[in-house]
Design a protein around this nucleic acid. Structure first.
Lengths: 335, 335
DNA sequence: CGCCATATTGCAACCGGTTGCAAAGGGGGT
DNA sequence: ACCCCCTTTGCAACCGGTTGCAATATGGCG
């Protein structure tokens, strides 16, 4: 049913090589030949089969896109950017939805079966070894939202989570909060570990710091953990490791009759679109999602050209976005 | 670098056909042969190349998944379900992110180039002709969230949008609202057209009905349109064609000092996860997303087996989910 | 033990393109 | 018109598997 190169060659009265070359960037074809072939191809509605050509060239223009965060609204933005960015550059994302799994074995096999050109692991909850497995299997890989490192084993692009944790601490203290707490995502997530690390760092200054973890980066998990905390914890302000956790936590607080920000302050991280909605209005640390994703795509493309490039960490900077869930610097808010 | 069938054949000391057959469901291979081949394959870490085999068999196990709703949080659920459901059945989604485009030409070419086995168009804003183009190009196609029809030209799976519109109208009238309005998505979206149609249908009963459209199914669009309406419209209750529109509309209302539900009632459609969050607490009509997606996947698989099956419409039913943005049946709420 | 039907195996062509190599074509200079 | 050199073209092998067909092996039965 679909038109093949051979049919075009016959119609144009030339060899299959000639047709192939007209559709290959930089191949040696005369203008006359090119015109003849294009005419025939046009007439038949021919489009070369990427997968067949991939068999010879070893490039399928397929990029494995692996994630496990399908419950965090931020990932809608992430997917939008990735899929658009990749397709604008002539690449196709092949999605792998990891739900529970953290063992890379199956994913590696899968992506090998589809001979993807490269892999992007977009997750801050998968262990570093996960992305590494792809590199060891010989595939170019970029770990987006991974943990930065001075001597990374795979390319990593993201933010400095330790610095973000420190910034959150600093912000809360500046606002006059003295009993502050960290509400993390899964304890195994490198992003949570690092944000906590930064949050704990610093002089005591008469400040009480505590922390705990939610099961996942999700609304439910945030709400559940805050509900649990309400029985014992009495922090004045929380740094939630993610916006959606913050929103869940706020729901629990309000459900228990605590006002935000008058009784309890909340600061999140990500600045997802929704954080700016009036009903949410979350003070948060902005993570430059678009820039991170652009950089990830650029990097994976660079790796396609030079697969043995030395892995590097790219760190993009974050900034505070002031909204309505933290009291102002100048002391307690009026009720 | 990757292990090929030929290497396995050599190691096992058998023909390549034998190896191929051991990995082919239902092929004729003796137990002894199978064991020998498996041993060799195991040792080498062999996994057959799906794309190469697709070249001969004509099946790539790739399913094109086309959507243009990357700004509606409901699509996070949609992607999660689709990607999981497909991969559980051994298929891989190949995502196409349509942003502005409504011309199927490029998408058809693209998916042909990747010789996908089938296509799922997951959108209620694309015209019916879009999905049809794939069928005409010879690909099995399912239009998820498409417009139902007694004699559809392509398989459609979704809800009865006209009935939903009618249910929304009935619900608002039962609650005692007398000036009611429809706030739609894009006017070209079949879902908006049909929901409006159902909403307008029925006796006058001293009820005033009006309607208008937002530019997109998005928070921004809902907020903007409601902001505009606030200058002239004075409906007591709105049926917003989508939850995210509702949330945007509520933001605009509250921003203008109107209370929901005391001053204005809002009912949405979808019942996305977020609609149940305490800060949102949206009364809405539940669309059975999971069931729709399961049915879509089952249907596309059925079509793989029988590509010339007669297209059919599957309609799943919706139900009202009572939350906090509509006053109760028994009259005006206390303030 | 021989015969025949059935199950298993290998050969070789093919899926849709790509590409190294050698042959053919074209242009410029004399 | 001739020669030389650079372009353009076609041939044929190959990418990693699949599969129809014929050859071979196996098993059952008399």
């Amino acid at each position: 049913m679909p038109v093949t190169l051979k049919e075009v060659a016959e119609l144009a009265g030339v060899s299959t090589s000639a047709v192939s070359r007209t559709f290959t960037e930089g191949a040696s074809v005369s203008a006359k030949m090119r015109a003849k072939v294009h005419a025939a191809a046009e007439q038949l509605g021919y489009a070369p089969n990427v997968l067949a050509s991939g068999l010879s060239t070893g490039r399928t223009k397929l990029i494995g896109l692996i994630s496990n965060n399908f419950h965090n609204p931020i990932f809608l933005e992430v997917f939008d950017r990735f899929t658009r960015g990749l397709q604008e550059r002539g690449l196709r994302p092949l999605i792998v939805n990891l739900t529970e799994e953290t063992d890379p074995f199956n994913s590696v096999r899968l992506l090998r079966q589809y001979s993807v050109d490269g892999v992007i692991v977009a997750s801050s909850t998968l262990p570093p070894a996960f992305a590494l497995a792809f590199r060891q299997a010989g595939m170019p890989v970029v770990h987006t939202f991974g943990r930065r490192s001075a001597h990374p084993e795979v390319d990593v692009i993201g933010i400095d989570n330790v610095a973000c944790g420190a910034q959150a601490r600093r912000t809360l203290i500046e606002r006059g909060y003295r009993r502050i707490a960290f509400l993390g995502g899964p304890e195994q997530a490198t992003s949570t570990q690092d944000r906590l690390k930064g949050f704990l760092r610093g002089r005591a200054d008469g400040v009480t710091v505590s922390y705990s973890f939610a099961d996942a980066y999700s609304f439910e998990a945030g709400r559940d953990e805050m509900t649990r905390l309400l029985q014992s914890e009495d922090a004045e302000a929380f740094f939630c490791a993610d916006d959606v956790l913050s929103i869940g936590a706020i729901a629990a607080l309000r459900g228990a009759g605590r006002r935000v920000p008058q009784d309890v302050g909340i600061i999140g991280l990500n600045d997802m679109e929704m954080a700016g909605w009036e009903s949410i209005d979350l003070t948060t640390i902005h993570q430059p999602i678009s820039a991170i994703i652009e950089a990830s795509i650029d990097r994976v493309i660079a790796l396609l050209g030079d697969p043995r490039a030395r892995p590097q960490s790219q760190v993009l900077s974050c900034r505070l976005v002031e909204r309505g869930t933290l009291r102002r610097r100048d002391g307690p808010q009026d009720t």
